[in-house]
Nucleic acid binder design. Structure first.
Lengths: 112, 112
DNA sequence: CGGCATACCTTGACAGCTTAGGTATTAGCG
DNA sequence: CGCTAATACCTAAGCTGTCAAGGTATGCCG
């Protein structure tokens, strides 16, 4: 956690998952890979963070899941955005932008 | 915590504090106010997060503290950056930029 | 005198990430 | 044929950090 040691800042995983699903359903393992690949591994999502997050988000009604088969014909659980999830994606994206912009501006102030 | 409810993303407080001190020593209360004011209250630092953070960072050798008096002639603990703290500021700033850029890019991909 | 701002602190609850395991299936290789 | 690696899922323990909610003390101002 944190900028000091960890690899993922606590609280940003959800919006990344939501975004990963905005093109349509994906299975958990694939979501993790998508995030890693699309950030040049700057963001490395641990499985121990990913799966609990998926369950959490489904419990909150942001995601819907069903079992299916991958292109490799392997058993996998596919997650899709619910209406609530889509709303969350929009809100949290906005919040991320305002938050990150605020932090970045602070950090850009030239110091002594 | 998180983008959903909280006001501060876990792990970003440290770098904000370090930055606040990059112009010279400040007391804790003033650090909190500086962050709030300079972000139009987008980032509202709770005291219950701030003071433990200061103690933590001092324990890690990033900060040095001494008691003094404010402009209002009130007793207050002033914190200043140590050499280690300055290094931390540089590192964490870099890390923040790469992290936030990665997230922002992901979120900007246009979806279906 | 009472309230508000300044300035510090701590505790308990809780969320979320990391580490470190675990299972099962399939593909590829020697 | 057996081994390893990749795919795909899951969980538990431990830790860190934030929030909510308290608390102390001082000084100013109406």
């Amino acid at each position: 956690m944190s900028l000091s040691d960890g690899v993922l800042i606590a609280g940003t995983l959800d919006v990344l998952v939501l975004k990963a699903l905005s093109w349509g359903p994906r299975h958990g393992y694939g979501i993790g890979r998508w995030i890693n690949e699309n950030t040049d591994a700057v963001l490395a999502v641990e499985e121990g963070a990913l799966y609990p997050a998926l369950h959490r988000m489904e419990r909150r009604g942001w995601l819907e899941s069903r079992w299916g088969r991958t292109e490799l014909d392997r058993r996998a659980k596919f997650y899709g955005l619910s209406r609530k999830g889509r709303r969350q994606l929009a809100e949290q994206t906005k919040r991320w932008h305002s938050y990150s912009q605020a932090v970045s501006l602070l950090l850009q102030k030239r110091s002594a």
